[in-house]
């Protein structure tokens, strides 16, 4: 955890806080209900969201990323009211401000390392790939120890390398927020440490807000704040559940 990863020097990101109020979300044809009365996350903080499977951790991440919309309540990220945005606005906001990291890495199997890193530029016309972006992507790959594996397809990379490619892909658009869903879930201890070091390094160096969903309590040491969903997730009977997550400050 102490290992520092040097990242390319770029302009510091805009520090964006997150505010959730009276949030209610229900999946269609499901009893599941996520209800959050109020939740604020400071700009530039390192936050871990923990809780048992099915408690709504990933759903919260998806709501904040604009992947899904709440039925009620407000999600404010910086000056943007994500909850009131149209689908297209949410997509554009997500791709320009949020970097996403997933448990299964979710690399595209037919693209090589470089192409996977640059994928956000290929799939959304609201951002254009400039020579600087390409240079930045290359430097990210080099910094992540992938400089000699730039032409390799995912199946020829180790799991740690694949997750590093996924992190590069999350960072390549220079986002202000990084949402990572179980980023170490499929990694061995050594790689877990390395990935967390990278994410924390980014947070430290660039000031990006880092929100990590995890159920792995062993990795919580480096986070500034831990939001525990254990008593927070609401199921079929929301009235019987508390509406604030239990929080602890590390």
């Amino acid at each position: 955890m102490n290992q520092k990863t040097e990242l390319p020097i770029t302009a510091r990101r805009l520090m964006i806080p997150i505010h959730l109020e009276q949030l209610e979300f229900r999946y269609p044809r499901s009893d599941f209900l996520l209800k959050i009365d109020q939740l604020a996350i400071e700009a530039g903080s390192r936050v871990a969201i923990v809780g048992p499977s099915g408690s709504g951790k990933t759903t919260l991440l998806n709501l904040m990323a604009g992947i899904c919309s709440p039925q009620q309540g407000r999600i404010q990220i910086g000056s943007h009211a994500v909850s009131t945005m149209s689908d297209a606005e949410r997509r554009n906001f997500r791709i320009s401000r949020i970097g996403m990291v997933f448990q299964q890495f979710e690399l595209v199997d037919y693209l090589n390392t470089e192409e996977n890193i640059l994928l956000p530029f290929a799939i959304n016309q609201s951002i254009r790939l400039s020579p600087e972006d390409r240079q930045y992507a290359e430097s990210l790959a080099v910094q992540m120890g992938l400089g000699d594996k730039i032409r390799r397809l995912p199946h020829r990379l180790s799991q740690g390398e694949q997750q590093r490619v996924a992190i590069c892909r999350a960072l390549v658009t220079r986002p202000s927020l990084i949402f990572a869903d179980e980023p170490t879930g499929n990694l061995d201890p050594k790689n877990k440490t390395r990935i967390l070091d990278i994410l924390f390094g980014v947070n430290r160096e660039e000031g990006q807000t880092l929100i990590v969903v995890t159920h792995d309590t062993q990795i919580l040491d480096g986070f500034e704040r831990i939001i525990d969903f254990q008593d927070f997730t609401v199921d079929a009977n929301p009235a019987s559940q508390p509406d604030r997550p239990r929080e602890s400050q590390s």
Partner: peptide, 16 residues
């Protein structure tokens, strides 16, 4: 499906 889901999460429109 997963590949498409990932693209969507990254900001790709369903139209694309």
């Amino acid at each position: 499906m997963r590949e498409m889901q990932t693209m969507f999460k990254l900001g790709c429109s369903r139209g694309t």
